[in-house]
Each structure stands twice: as C-alpha cells, then as structure tokens.
C-alpha cells in the first residue's frame, strides 16, 4: 500500500516556552485509502499536529522540528508558496466549524471560484460551473442559488457539505478532518461520515481528529491516542477497542461508552 503521509519525530514548541513541547515526538504514517484517527482530550495536541501538517501554525509563535513527508517531500522544509499550492488541491481540509469557516461578507460561489482558480488556470465562468458541478455531486439542492448566497444564510450541515465538495474537487491524496462532525446535528453527522466512507473507497487517505470514539470506530483503520502532547498508545481500531493497554485509553473508552448508553 502506498504511503501518502509520514510524520516522524514531530516536536511543536511555543517559542516563549521552548523547554515544554506541546507535541512531543509524534510519529505516524497514513496510507492511501485508509483512515487514521487521532483521539484524545482537548489540549492533547491533536489539532496542533494537523495544523502543523498544513503549515497553518504561525512561524513566529511556534517552533516546529522533525519531519513531515508527503510523496517524498518534506512539508516542513518547503517554501510557503509551494505548500500553499498543495493545500486545497492535493492536501485538503474539512473544518471543525463550517459556520465560521467562510468569509461572511463574500458569497459562497466567489469563495469556491477563487479556490479553484488558485490551483488551476480557469476563467471565472468556468470556475463557477465547476463549483456548481461539485455541489451537485454532494446532492445539494438548487446549487446555482447556493453559489449566490452568503455563508450566514446557510445551515451548518449545508456549509459542511460545501467544504467537503471543495476538498474533493482536486482529487486530493489525503484529507485532514479536524473534528469535522462535532458541530453538526446527528443527521448531518451521519451524512458527513458517509461521505468520508466514499472518500476512502476512492483511495483518499483520511486523517481524522476526534474525541468521539464512535466516529473513530466507524471510519478508522488505525488509531492513535494522544495525551499531553505524547502518543501514548497506537494500534488497529480493533485492537484498541478490544484490548486497550493504557489506563487512560480505557478511561476514554469507558467515558464514551457511558455517554452512548445515557443517550439511549
């Protein structure tokens, strides 16, 4: 199987507190068409890890060392211009809160079109048409009208489908989904999970960040448990669920099971 992302010995430190790494020696890899879930409580460093992959961390604030290899290139060494060219085309992201992800003062269509036009030479009109097609593929209703609306008139579920459509347009090698279902209601969560399932089948790698074991169990092949910046346990989803080694993992598992029971 082809490896699309390999993170090794990743350290992230705050520049003003260099002695305490907030991500401490993280190593993992992501295969084509598979899904890797990073679970852990808030503040465990999972979001930072993802942001580091897309180079979204402010370089004046964070000190990052180690290597993040994608197709043989080190993303950390790349120029900002090159990494931006990869982001949104070969490496895509599905956001945590779709309601705040778009610029509220610019219409959806314009924001989609500008994304398309950064990555390929297109006329404005062609970009719009491509955008409409992408939305139609997500089974969104009245796509032309959608392109002409401002983000704040749309629901979270709709916006999340738009971000997924946008992520898929350029056939990415892998997608980072940081708590992509957390802000959604149950119905929309279900829909997003199905989309992720389809992506996997199309051979796209998925890097899931979640605190929801249910989501991880449904989608992921492998799992990492992070705590205080360290990866404390790793394995296949089956192994981790059936025989967690660390007490922390057990606690997390129990807590999420408890929640599920209460819900029922």
């Amino acid at each position: 199987m082809k490896e699309v992302l390999k993170v090794s010995h990743l350290y992230i430190r705050l520049k003003r507190a260099l002695d305490q790494p907030i991500v401490n020696n993280a190593s993992f890899s992501l295969q084509k068409g598979s899904a890797l879930a990073i679970v852990g409580e808030s503040g465990s460093g999972k979001t930072l890890t993802c942001k580091a992959v897309m180079r979204l961390l402010n370089a004046r604030q964070f000190n990052i060392s180690g290597s993040i290899r994608y197709n043989g290139m080190d993303l950390l060494e790349m120029s900002e211009k090159k990494i931006r060219a990869l982001c949104g085309s070969k490496i895509a992201m599905v956001v945590q809160n779709p309601m705040t992800a778009f610029n509220p003062t610019v219409k959806i269509g314009a924001q989609m079109a500008e994304t398309l036009r950064v990555h390929q030479k297109l006329r404005k009109k062609a970009a719009y048409e491509l955008g409409i097609h992408a939305l139609e593929r997500m089974n969104l209703p009245r796509c032309e009208q959608l392109m002409n609306s401002y983000p704040y008139v749309l629901s979270g579920g709709m916006l999340q489908r738009i971000t997924i459509a946008l992520a898929l347009i350029h056939e990415p090698d892998f997608i980072i989904a940081d708590e992509a279902t957390t802000a959604l209601d149950v119905k929309n969560q279900q829909m997003v999970l199905e989309e992720f399932e389809k992506m996997k089948r199309r051979g796209i790698g998925l890097l899931l960040v979640t605190h929801d074991f249910g989501v991880a169990a449904k989608l992921a092949d492998d799992m990492l448990v992070m705590r205080r910046g360290k990866i404390i346990e790793r394995g296949t989803v089956y192994d981790l669920f059936s025989a967690p080694q660390q007490t922390y993992t057990k606690e997390l598992l129990d807590a999420s099971m408890l929640r599920k029971e209460k819900c029922m």
Binding site: K81, R84, V95, A101
Partner: peptide
Amino acid sequence: DYVTYAKARGLRNGRIVWGHVMRN
C-alpha cells in the same frame, strides 16, 4: 477561522489580506 480555512484552501497571503481580511 475563515483566515485559517482560506490558507488551507491554498489562497495566497496577499489574496487573503486584500480580498478577505481588509474587506471585513
């Protein structure tokens, strides 16, 4: 958030600043 997502979409800094941040 929209700035982070704009970067993740691959927009260049100039475009983000002049097209989005300034406007807001």
